[in-house]
Computed example of a mutant assay.
Amino acid sequence: MEWSDEGIILGLRRHGEANAIVELMTAEHGRHLGLVRGGASRRQAAGLQPGNGVRVVWRARLDEHLGAFALEVTAPRAARLMEHAHSAFALSHVGSLLRLLPERDPHPALHRALEAVVEHLDEARLTGMLIARLELMMLSELGFGLDLESCAATGGRNDLLYVSPKSGRAVSRDAGEPWRSQLLDLPYFLVGEVAEPPSRDDVHAAFELTGFFLARRVFEPRGLTLPDARAAMRAALLRAR
């Protein structure tokens, strides 16, 4: 068995004295692990860091085997991403989210989004927006997507400012005002393009929204809590902005 693909390194761990098991998010083969021979060596380990983009060839005798990776680093981002606390924590958080996906389950749209995210994680003004959008996409990829296109009460598509915590549907300003204290804020950048990076308040509201549904629909049913790296990332962003 053999295939080639594009991937982004999510993590690695030593395997034996000299080898490493590398975890990738690939374009066509989903989240995939493979053995890199000599991957624990100083020469190779420098390139096998989270955030780096790679060209990968996977080989195995049978499809269900772990198999071996041959990797070529095509986008060496890790060094600059690790220079900043917010981007280092963001990478860790993203890895935790992606590990919720079944291994080897293709998610090409998610891979494309991840490419755009990791390319700009060292830019503190963009990181909050990028991660919140990715969290929203992860909810959808995991089967818990929110309906943010029309008002749950009226069916209208304008002035959508809130989200119902019960249904995960958007609510317009007029329909939601009587229930304002019971609804979650919906920052515009989660549903439309913006010319400038969102404000700190909008990023906070977005993380409150995505965090609520990630906790209730994804992590808590698995007996888990939101990753510690998420809170650390948010704190680091506050210091960096």
Rank of each mutant, 00 (worst) to 15 (best):
F219I: 05
L190D: 12
H204P: 00
G47D: 08
L114I: 05
D5T: 09
V203D: 12
H86P: 04
H107T: 09
E177I: 06
H65G: 07
V203M: 10
G176D: 07
L98G: 00
E17P: 10
D174F: 03
A206H: 11
R180E: 15
V57F: 04
P198H: 00
E64F: 03
G223T: 14
A132M: 09
A45T: 10
A90F: 06
R80N: 04
E141T: 06
R14L: 02
A85Q: 02
W58S: 02
V194K: 12
L186T: 05
E23R: 01
A232K: 13
R42K: 13
H29D: 07
V218Q: 03
L100C: 03
G168L: 09
A46C: 02
R43M: 04
G51Y: 02
E119D: 14
V203K: 09
S87G: 08
A175K: 05
E193N: 02
G211M: 02
P187D: 00
E115M: 11
I8H: 01
L35A: 09
P227V: 02
S92A: 08
A240K: 06
N52G: 07
L148S: 15
A229I: 04
F144A: 08
S87I: 07
F207E: 12
A60G: 14
A45W: 02
A132C: 11
D5I: 06
R55M: 03
M82P: 00
D202W: 03
F219Q: 06
P221W: 00
F189Q: 10
G7I: 05
P197L: 05
P102S: 13
S167K: 14
V171C: 03
L130N: 03
L134Y: 11
E103N: 05
R241A: 11
M233E: 12
P102D: 15
F212C: 10
V218L: 05
A153L: 07
D105V: 07
M82I: 01
A124M: 09
G143E: 13
P50T: 00
V171D: 10
D122E: 15
A175I: 09
L190Y: 10
L10Y: 01
F189D: 14
P187G: 01
H29I: 09
L224D: 12
V56N: 01
F144K: 05
A229T: 15
L121H: 01
E208K: 14
G145Q: 09
A175Y: 03
H65T: 02
R169D: 12
F69I: 05
A79F: 10
P108D: 01
F69N: 04
H120A: 11
L237A: 08
L226F: 13
G155D: 10
R125Q: 13
L186P: 07
G145Y: 01
Y162L: 07
H93E: 09
T225L: 12
L238S: 10
E6Y: 05
E220C: 04
L142V: 04
A116H: 14
L12W: 11
K166Q: 15
T154A: 15
L97V: 06
P108Q: 08
V194P: 07
E72F: 03
G30D: 13
T225M: 11
G168E: 09
H111C: 06
A88H: 09
R31Q: 03
A79C: 04
F207Y: 14
H29W: 08
V171H: 00
S199H: 01
H93T: 08
R200K: 13
H15V: 10
